[in-house]
Design a protein around this nucleic acid. Structure first.
Lengths: 189, 189
DNA sequence: AGCCGATTGTGATTATTGTCACAGGTGTAC
DNA sequence: GTACACCTGTGACAATAATCACAATCGGCT
């Protein structure tokens, strides 16, 4: 595998020796996705987590036929559906490529059954999980605390990459407004 | 300590032998709180997590002089500010007794420094943390997916205890509306 | 019971956001 | 280039929620 970015990202979470790294990598597969290809579909139980090497993954929810975006994960980021994984219930979300993408898929069950006795492996999995949950909590606080316009300006300041990479229409549901409202928020400079 | 409820709650998370339990309890202190007494104040770094034995804890945020309630934790529940704890940044939230309360405070640093080598202790801490984050995520989905009226009815069905214990005024900001709007939602039976 | 403060309900008005409709712009495939 | 699909901006109007004001109710407390 040509997987330098993956190895560096793993080491940034837990700096493990080559031996452990090799075992971890044996539970990972590389996938090239076209826009719209899903790594997790509604109704499936989530058994993996995902690392984005190129492109981005979009997590979305279908509410009465309307798409609501819950998350965008860009290069060097991890994502998953932890709730589905933990509860073993079917996912209510789809996770798919928002554009042409290269992702690495970690097989959680395989890691658990083969290597969870390795302390660094357990630590890695735990840290990724906590990161995902803290990131999710952060996004959710946008909704609990801020108005739509405040949410947009918060993203402008703290996550401008989103504005560069995601179309206004996609961003609107992530912020929790219609695309028209977001367009008007934006036009008031 | 007269701490049966505490011990039972711990065992419900991880059923540990008496030895481990004794070590864990050595990191816990019991506190009787009056309404309004805080266990975590804005500006402090969170170094504890809290178990509610009687009464309830309320987590709130001050936005331009307006109080926004983010969480209510009742009997047999755990709470904390995980973000502040993980990042070692000052808390933006206050956690205080919403009524006369008895809470047990877990000293996270003490557990980490003295007992984290015990697998069951590490497991306990991890499970509590994941529970808190999943609960927070669940609350946030209310905001991402539902309208104010739908949020109220969701709570009616899934968390009616809130409606019995929390005043309308306190509940309003938790649901993300003014107290007037919540009153009107409610009056439409 | 009667008082007092806190909480809740409700009307009138304003502000915000959603819905619908359509025009213009951009990029890609043929 | 042309056609077409997709995205963005904007106006008109409707729906929803916030704000302000005040009346009614509820809950301790003496």
């Amino acid at each position: 595998m040509d997987n330098e970015p993956l190895i560096n990202a793993i080491k940034a979470v837990v700096d493990m020796p080559d031996e452990d790294m090799a075992m971890l990598l044996s539970c990972v597969t590389r996938h090239e996705l076209k826009k719209g290809d899903a790594v997790l579909e509604v109704g499936q139980v989530c058994r993996h987590f995902y690392f984005v090497d190129e492109g981005y993954l979009r997590t979305w929810y279908n509410k009465d036929g309307i798409v609501i975006n819950l998350n965008f994960t860009f290069e060097k980021g991890f994502t998953s559906n932890l709730r589905s994984f933990k509860s073993r219930n079917p996912s209510e979300y789809t996770i798919e490529a928002g554009e042409k993408a290269i992702v690495y898929i970690f097989d959680w069950d395989k890691i658990a059954s083969q290597h969870i006795d390795l302390p660094l492996m357990a630590l890695f999995v735990r840290r990724v999980a906590v990161r995902l949950l803290l990131a999710s909590e952060e996004h959710s606080e946008l909704f609990k605390i801020y108005t739509p316009a405040e949410r947009y300006h918060f993203i402008e300041r703290n996550n401008p990459r989103l504005l560069q990479r995601i179309s206004l229409s996609q961003l609107a549901s992530y912020i929790g407004v219609t695309r028209e409202t977001l367009s008007r928020i934006r036009s008031k400079n």
